[in-house]
Write a protein that binds this DNA or RNA. Structure first.
Lengths: 231, 231
DNA sequence: CGGCATGTTGAGTCAATTCAACAGCAGTGG
DNA sequence: CCACTGCTGTTGAATTGACTCAACATGCCG
């Protein structure tokens, strides 16, 4: 596994090219540049676990390339994926000392990571760092709140429409999105079975609302109609 | 509407009696005692709106007596309640400037409130305050993550069992819980219809797992079996 | 080229919903 | 005091959206 260590002064050179941050500012970048904060690069293979639910929270991660799913399991194996993390996204931030979800690479993934210990230290003296940590957690919370509405009250088609628009916004570069995750992952994210996801996508294809290049390469042909289906 | 203003020095006298905080520490209390932070009391009537989705976030609230629901609506009226807030709980904390859910009193409710403006000011100079704000948001996030698992993957009976154990933990004082919310609220919290909630409760009653004093006064008779049903 | 992962589609089933009727209770006013 | 009214909760019957189970198609990797 390839590992590289970057000290604060050189970290700026690592800024991810061609990625528009979801946030107007880049809280992770702001933190990573603090004196005393050391960022490291690390690579995970497809399906490799980054951390497990209940494990001590030792690092904060930012995805450079690839994708990560974070999820919870029930004892009988039923799984709920809480979020997909894509290039530029930060994950693994847990004010409590233990992770509350498991994180796994969906595809081969490169992350930048910062020890929690140095974050705590930076936050203790630098109010702006503390504020950024809060902002990042709040961002996760907003997503979770929206997702509860989806899981509790939307129909299968509405869920898939919402998913497509979310992914389109987050990873479509050229009008085409290359989904890193399989149908089962999408189902476990949307609270559906993989078959139901597949049927909904086929139906949207039949209606001309989207077009497949391959099963995971999708272009939206009518965002307006899709937005109307989102409920 | 009765309003009372408390300055920091006297705020300690207002500590809510006979309420065990969900957290080992009391972040709200810690913040409310900061110099420059002024807490006010306010009363909302049953079904009165505390704030609406999209409104500017001006206050942080702590419930003294009563109960509040926070929810999101779809355009056709479908509702997802994200959380119930009970005495001692803090709600309305939003790092962004706008509320992302609507808050309504479930019954006549007394809250203590602190202006957001003074929080920002306190957090800018006091790292401990900043840390407490982060901790409170993280607490909301944890609940949301657990609730996504419930909404996406649990059966109706498992949802109701989880709900009963949550409420038992949070408001049972004498082995009896007095639910402030109606069946429709419970359904909208659990992603079910009110009829399904009612049927599940009746079934638990028939099985001797709980006992009704009235429709909203419930005593758990077998927490172990209920925990086993939680999945 | 074969073998396994992944994805699609069909048929039948079922858990939860919808629609409907009724019961219980609280508050109101004669 | 009791009928009246509205609201909340329960229960039954029929429906349905999503699931389960199954077969087959596709595509990728060695």
């Amino acid at each position: 596994m390839h590992t590289r260590t970057i000290t604060a002064p050189t970290a700026k050179a690592l800024d991810i090219p061609h990625v528009v941050m979801a946030e107007p500012t880049d809280p992770f970048g702001a933190i990573a540049h603090c004196s005393g904060v050391v960022a490291t690069e690390y690579t995970y293979r497809k399906d490799e676990e980054v951390y497990g639910e209940g494990e001590p929270s030792e690092y904060l991660y930012q995805i450079i390339r690839g994708a990560v799913r974070t999820y919870k399991l029930l004892s009988d194996g039923r799984r709920q994926i809480g979020a997909f993390h894509l290039p530029g996204d930060v994950f693994g931030l847990d004010p409590s000392s233990e992770h509350r979800l498991t994180a796994e690479a969906i595809v081969d993934t490169i992350v930048r990571l910062v020890p929690r210990r140095s974050l705590e230290k930076a936050a203790a003296s630098n109010v702006q760092v503390a504020r950024n940590l809060w902002t990042m957690t709040a961002c996760d919370l907003r997503h979770a709140e929206d997702h509860m509405l989806l899981l509790g009250r939307k129909t299968a088609m509405e869920r898939v429409a919402t998913f497509l628009l979310e992914m389109d916004r987050r990873l479509a570069k050229t009008g085409m999105m290359a989904l890193p995750m399989c149908r089962r992952d999408i189902g476990d994210y949307l609270g559906l079975t993989l078959e139901t996801v597949s049927r909904a996508l086929s139906q949207l294809n039949d209606q001309g609302i989207l077009m497949f290049s391959s099963a995971r390469e999708i272009a939206l042909r009518n965002r307006q109609r899709l937005t109307a289906m989102e409920a």
